[in-house]
Simulated scan of single mutants.
Amino acid sequence: MTAENVALVIGASGGIGAAVARRLLDDNRYSTVFCVSRAATPPSALAATPGLRWLPCSGSPEDIAAVRGELGDDVGRLARVVICSGILHAGDKGPEKSLEQLDPAWMQAVFHANSITPMLWLQALAKGLGRKQHCVIAALSARVGSIGDNRLGGWYSYRASKAALNMLLQTAAVELARRAPASKLIAFHPGTTDTALSRPFQGNVAAGKLFSPDFVAGRLLAVMDAATADGTLSYLDWDGQAITW
């Protein structure tokens, strides 16, 4: 890669997203790092950093299309895309522990944030990817999205939304193998990271297994650097190990 490459971080004001953006901005292989967020302005850790392009976006289809328009021909220079957006809890809603707690409106909200929105971003970017363009695209998935690994139950909507995301990404990987064969898709499990998303659920995390956002960002980018285009989706954890589907 050369300094003519650009990177894109979606969800750049979250804990992992901001850490990924910081590392990319410090990497001289990238001339520009586009950062998409619901926040109107970047966090102080990123503000006024050379190479930063901050793009506020609500996540609606119309706003995604508008951001795609702002990216313009730079989509054809993308070397890294990281999709960090998603939800686990909001207000009094969170992971369901039993069937009695299932709520259709909450389920729809979780699926929209964790499954549909990442695919709308991929849809917006796909047409601009060149056949020889080595673009590695990673979306934050989760080990709890693994059907084979599910022995504890619970967390219905979150588990199912991540399993759905994995299937959607694998389907897209098959298509991109024809349209943009030098690209690569990764579903990445970051482990339990010390962010607002996991904070209510950190009490039972084993010693040494609560990771800092910067550590996770470093592991994610290392996994992306090691990736090769093979026409399939890789479902990997923070240590680069494959997760069962």
Rank of each mutant, 00 (worst) to 15 (best):
P56W: 09
A21L: 07
V20F: 06
G11D: 08
S13V: 11
A47D: 01
T32I: 12
R22W: 12
R68G: 14
A39C: 10
D26E: 15
R38A: 14
V9T: 01
S13M: 11
G17Y: 01
E62H: 00
V67E: 11
E4M: 00
A65Y: 13
V36F: 10
D27G: 14
E62Q: 09
P50R: 05
P50M: 11
R53A: 08
G59I: 07
A48W: 03
R23F: 08
G15D: 07
A18V: 09
A39P: 05
T41E: 07
D63S: 09
P56Y: 09
A65E: 06
G51W: 09
A47P: 06
P50G: 05
V6C: 01
V67C: 07
S58F: 04
E4G: 10
I16D: 00
R38I: 02
A39E: 02
T32R: 15
G59E: 07
G17T: 05
L52K: 06
G59F: 12
A45G: 07
Y30N: 06
A19P: 15
P42T: 13
P42Y: 11
G14R: 11
I10T: 03
A19K: 12
L55V: 10
D63F: 10
L24N: 10
A45H: 01
C57W: 10
A65D: 15
G15M: 07
C57N: 11
G59S: 00
P61F: 02
